[in-house]
Each structure stands twice: as structure tokens, then as C-alpha cells.
């Protein structure tokens, strides 16, 4: 059996909130989380707003300090202890682990052309040797993400929300990562492009052997995309199961409530979920 790509044990992330010295509190945004992400898997993370999904993702990307527990990355070529990274490790890890943002507006610099936005990680990480090579890579990945190649010289403000999200997906995939965390990456997309992007992510998973951690509040999207689902609540993982099992037979009260709240397409019926008992 191959080792998992990500393995955590009692992983915790704490923030101090409140500001003033006397009523300072700490908040355990991620609280003793132990889980694994197998190589090549498409793992969904669901749970209410503020339950710690983004923070867990950021911890695994080393974008926020891990304050307790263990976390390891192993893609078969390199191995890292995510709680103890040298600057050199971090540089290599940045190439291998990428984030697709929740908010395509905040993510794209308004003063850069689409071409430069997608090229930036390649140039910053020194992955291409010439401008021609960079351009070729940008065009290849932009094409894979079904961006209009004639628009590469435009600035992001001229694109609508959905178009911008494709740009940020292309940017994330430019460095040819092994591990991609997609944080609400289809939330801003219309249903048609959502279907298209989900199909795209699934085919990228297969073609490029990518491993995805897919954070989403949209359970019907998760049901269609992920092999395995992890449910978070107040910083903890409360349920974790293969997708079909989770939807057919949720074990926790919290998961059942979540499923029951999915809005129905029928105006006369509130919930879309088949009656769960």
C-alpha cells in the first residue's frame, strides 16, 4: 500500500482574538484533526461557515502556523514534515502544493494582464527558462482551462466572475503541482461553467495524477465530484466516509441536518435531500 499524500495527527491551529489584553481569547480554528488524504484522491471537506475548513487547508499549505500536532506530506518523490520546514523545503513545497482561491476578485491583481497572472508563479519559482517557454506553458494551461487565448493580454477587470475563476485555476496549475486545495473554487461560477470546471478538475485529477482537497459548502457539488467526504464542525472532523456512504447513511446528527438544508429546486418543497431518517 502506498503512503498517503497527507497525514495529520491531532493537528491544531489557534488564533488569538479580542485584541485588548484583558479580554484576549484564543480560538482553536482547527482542533486536534487526524486524517489522511490518499494519493490521487478527490477529498471533499464540508461543514458550516467558520468550522475551520479554510484554516485546515491553509495549515496544510504552510500558509498559517500549525500550533500543535503532526502533519506530513509525501508524494513519492519528496517528503516533508509540515510542522518543521526549512526555507528550502518551503520553496519546493510551494511548487508542489497549490491553492485555488475562494474569492476570485481578491486573488487577481488588477494591474497584471491575464498572461502575467498565469506566468507569475512560473517566473517567481524559476520554472521556465525563457519567455518563449513561459508563453508556451501559459497558452497550454490556459487552453486546458478553456480560456480564450485571444484574451491573455487583457486585465482581469474586463472579465466576469466566472471567467476570473478559470484564470485563477490556470494560475494554480501553471507550476504543475501534485496537490491542489480548491477552496470554494466553484462557488462563484454559474451552473454551466461549474459543471464544466468540475468535469475539468476531475479530468485533471486523472490525466495529471493530481490529488485534490476540495472545500465546498455545496453538498450536491461534493456528492458529484469527491470520492471521500470529511465533515467539519467547530474545528473538528465529526464524520468521514466514502461519498456514497455519507449521503446514503449519514451517521451524525450534524451531517443529517446539513443534508436536510440543501434547498430544493421545487418551489413548494423546502429541502432537496431525499428523506433521511
Amino acid at each position: 500500500m502506498t503512503k498517503p499524500l497527507i497525514r495529520t495527527k491531532d493537528l491544531s491551529v489557534e488564533f488569538s482574538i479580542g485584541g485588548k489584553i484583558f479580554n484576549k481569547k484564543t480560538l482553536k480554528a482547527v482542533n486536534d484533526v487526524s486524517f489522511e488524504i490518499p494519493r490521487g484522491a478527490f477529498v471533499g471537506v464540508v461543514g458550516e461557515s467558520g468550522s475551520g475548513k479554510t484554516t485546515l487547508g491553509r495549515a496544510l499549505l504552510n500558509a498559517v502556523d500549525i500550533t500543535g500536532g503532526e502533519a506530513e506530506y509525501d508524494d513519492g518523490e519528496v517528503q516533508f514534515d509540515l510542522t518543521n520546514m526549512s526555507p528550502g523545503d518551503l520553496k519546493e513545497y510551494r511548487r508542489r502544493a497549490q491553492l485555488i482561491f475562494q474569492d476570485p476578485y481578491a486573488a487577481l491583481s488588477p494591474r497584471m494582464t491575464v498572461r502575467d497572472i498565469i506566468a507569475e508563479p512560473l517566473e517567481v519559482m524559476g520554472l521556465t527558462k525563457s519567455r518563449e517557454e513561459t508563453d508556451a506553458r501559459v497558452r497550454e494551461i490556459a487552453g486546458k482551462c478553456r480560456l480564450n487565448l485571444e484574451h491573455l493580454r487583457r486585465y482581469p477587470h474586463a472579465f466576469s466572475g466566472g471567467q476570473r475563476q478559470r484564470i485563477s485555476i490556470a494560475r494554480a496549475l501553471a507550476s504543475n503541482p501534485r496537490f491542489v486545495i480548491a477552496d470554494e473554487c466553484v462557488a462563484a461560477l454559474d451552473v454551466s461553467i461549474q459543471a464544466d470546471i468540475l468535469n475539468l478538475l476531475k479530468s485533471l485529477q486523472k490525466d495529471l495524477g493530481l490529488t485534490f482537497m476540495f472545500i465546498s459548502h455545496d453538498l450536491s457539488v461534493v456528492a458529484h465530484t469527491c470520492d471521500h467526504v470529511v465533515v467539519m464542525y467547530h474545528g473538528k472532523i465529526v464524520e468521514s466516509a466514502p461519498t456514497r456512504e455519507l449521503f446514503a447513511n449519514p451517521q451524525q446528527e450534524y451531517t443529517r441536518n446539513l443534508l436536510a438544508a440543501i434547498p430544493s429546486l421545487d418551489p413548494d418543497q423546502k429541502s432537496r435531500a431525499p428523506a433521511v431518517g
Partner: peptide, 16 residues
């Protein structure tokens, strides 16, 4: 409407 992921059939392909 067809592009919406449905919960009653998880195997149905997503159709843009």
C-alpha cells in the same frame, strides 16, 4: 436546469 448537480442520481454526468 440540466447543468445542476442532482442528488437523486450521483452517477449522472454533469452536463454543461
Amino acid at each position: 436546469l440540466n447543468a445542476l448537480p442532482r442528488l437523486d442520481d450521483l452517477d449522472a454526468p454533469l452536463t454543461p
